[in-house]
């Protein structure tokens, strides 16, 4: 995949960015396919923003090279790169109306007034802000500002779209709605999109592929599903969703595969079933491991219940979807936990 530079729109080649003696990004190599929605996910300080800024041209790499459509851009200032950027908190020009904000990138590309007006009208309609062209950014709601920012990034039709925590400033409901909007805009315009976020849910819903970064380096690159289902390291397992890492479980872990050296067993909480100790075993019982433990805590969260169950020396988290005729366990109850042996994963410790 790395050498398929024909279809690679963006390529990082051993890129390092130093701030003093600290490497914000270290030896980063990555290629992004044309039309792909790629998310860089990581905690703050992982270098994800620096990676985006390198791509945007606001930061020059200390070492290495960045290629866009096969051409090096390491020495090209941002204003000569053809890209649209959606900034964290949007960076809409507060002194210009929505319309003038949208016209700006067109004007900078020397497009005449009539053409500009037509394109702005079309774009405003597309983002459902037809009647808002005369407003100032401060008169818009968060979701509207976000749509203007997206429209502004897309209007000049750049092949590359960069998004810096695009939905971070929105509240929960709006965020979900905008995720859908963002996804459909991406499909419609067919841009290569690079998104930076620390929100795993956002990354999982939006992306074709996710890059998990940690301390300036790539931890794992994969599709959302593969990343969640088969994390390669403890860090990824913990960062993306919840994980039971069985360091010293106090019971023997049965697994179909042999445990590679330097790894530790992991199972996702929703892969574990909880039942009363005396409940009848399931039909596929021979493919399952079962252990008994004591409920230490039960957290009710609407559609699901979360149990903290002490098994031997470890505390397992179990997540169970709430269904009718389901037994609820309380603190102190004895329970039996079961899981498919094939659901055990080994991650690099």
């Amino acid at each position: 995949m790395k050498n398929s530079s024909v279809s690679a729109q963006i390529e990082f080649k051993n890129v390092t960015k130093m701030y003093g003696t600290v490497a914000a990004v270290e030896n980063l190599s990555l290629s992004v396919r044309r039309g792909e929605f790629l998310t860089i996910l990581g905690p703050s300080g992982s270098g994800k923003t620096t990676a985006l800024m390198l791509l945007a041209g606001f930061v020059a790499p200390t070492e290495g090279d960045i290629l866009i459509a096969g051409k090096s851009v390491a020495a090209v200032p941002s204003y000569r790169r053809d890209q649209g950027i959606v900034f964290q908190s949007y960076a809409l020009f507060p002194h210009l109306t929505v319309r003038r904000n949208l016209e700006f990138p067109l004007e900078m590309r020397g497009i005449n007034a009539a053409e500009r007006a037509a394109r702005v009208d079309r774009m405003l309609e597309r983002v459902h802000l037809k009647d808002y062209g005369g407003r100032m950014p401060s008169q818009l709601s968060g979701g509207q500002q976000q749509r203007v920012a997206l429209a502004r990034a897309l209007i000049a039709d750049p092949p590359v779209l960069l998004l810096d925590e695009p939905l971070g400033a929105l509240d929960r409901n709006l965020r979900e709605q905008m995720q859908g909007e963002l996804k459909s805009l991406h499909r419609e315009f067919g841009k290569t999109a690079i998104c930076v976020t620390h929100d795993q849910e956002e990354a999982l819903t939006l992306s074709d592929r996710i890059v998990v970064m940690r301390a300036g380096q790539i931890e794992q690159v994969d599709t959302p599903e593969a990343l969640y289902d088969r994390p390669s390291t403890r860090f990824v397992a913990n960062f993306l969703g919840e994980a039971n890492i069985l360091d010293n479980p106090g019971f023997k872990i049965e697994s179909d595969a042999a445990q590679p050296a330097g790894t530790v067993a992991m199972i996702r909480p929703e892969r574990i079933c909880v039942a009363a100790p005396a409940a009848p075993k399931r039909a596929d019982g021979n493919q399952r491991q079962s252990v008994t433990g004591t409920v230490e805590d039960m957290i009710y969260a609407g559609s699901l219940r979360k149990y903290h169950v002490r098994v031997g020396s470890s505390m397992l988290i179990v997540r169970e979807h709430v269904a009718s005729e389901q037994r609820t366990f309380r603190r102190g109850d004895e329970v039996r936990l079961e899981w498919l042996r094939s659901d055990i994963r080994f991650v690099i410790a």
Binding site: S78, Y79, S89, F93, A156
Partner: peptide
């Protein structure tokens, strides 16, 4: 960031 935004739009 407003300046960066302008520059990303080729100003």
């Amino acid at each position: 960031r407003l300046e960066q935004a302008a520059q990303s739009m080729r100003a």
